[in-house]
Amino acid sequence: MSVTGESLRRFLLRWSGVAVFLAAWEVAPRLDWIDPYFVPPFSTVLREAGVMFRDGTLGMHLVVSLWRAVAGLLTAILIGMPVGFLLGRRLVGVEQALRPILTVLSQVNPFSLLPVFLLFFGIGETAKVAVVSWVSLWPVMSFTITATRNVDPAQIRTALSMGISRLDLYCKVVLPAALPTIFTGMRVGAGLTFLILVAAEMLGSSAGLGYLVHNSAMNYLIPRIYAGATFIVVLGFLLNRLLLHVERRLSGVWEAGAFVTGPAGPAGAARLPGPAVSVAALGAVLIFIVFGGLEVSRINREAASYPSEALKHFGHIGQPVDR
């Protein structure tokens, strides 16, 4: 693909806002419009990020946070999808009866549950993963219920008319037809997950990106706060963009499956990745869960060997320093 003048102009326009913001961030502290102690210039923050990247701090906390997010999301999917399938197609009456309870449970604040989880599971990883799963469980489940219920009846009639077995109907028709909507549920869950995880890590943790920022604040390492925060923002942005991209691609292919008249689309415009890609992605997630888990427990052991401020579960924000 060639970058035409028009698309380049568009690109520059779209990112001009960010550029102006970063320029202001650089210039304002330098000219002493705001106190550079509280708001260090962007280049200082960037340099700090570079230092953390080189000494491995950033990578370590990133692995911990990502592992928690993936483990939590995976747990939510493993519970939410089968239950959503059952409530969506097999136990329709049960779902209707349970709806008020499910609605209330989905509104239960994850942070008010955090103490309960901490009591339940102890201070280890399980409590944090449980909070994350709790948050993403509800979108995954409710989107799965909607998705399985809204499968095109014509697709089901066609399959049934061929005398399809119930198992095949689920595996070959209902599941793939419901996939894009289920994926939307996963994206919504993942978005919330990231937000909540970082907050949970600030509340009681000895590693992770949220802890990194919190710990920097406790020790008045101000450029570090900004570096960590910027990293979290960019990571969340990229994650959101990636998931949106996958979702659009899926639904772009799916929606055109039924009842659309009109000209043929451009050949090969949006192909689905082959099964190899899906298998590879799944394998990568599993490997990450296993080896990431080993790494996380090692990091936790190391953190435990030198007690620090952060091991207090509810750290308090330090008073602002005197100017």
Binding site: T158, A177, V253, A258
Partner: peptide, 19 residues
């Protein structure tokens, strides 16, 4: 007594499997 492969069905909404 039920659906079987001795009858084929074609519906208005195509009902193709988009995946």
């Amino acid at each position: 007594t039920g659906p079987a492969l001795d009858r084929g069905i074609v519906l208005q909404g195509y009902a193709l499997f988009p995946w």
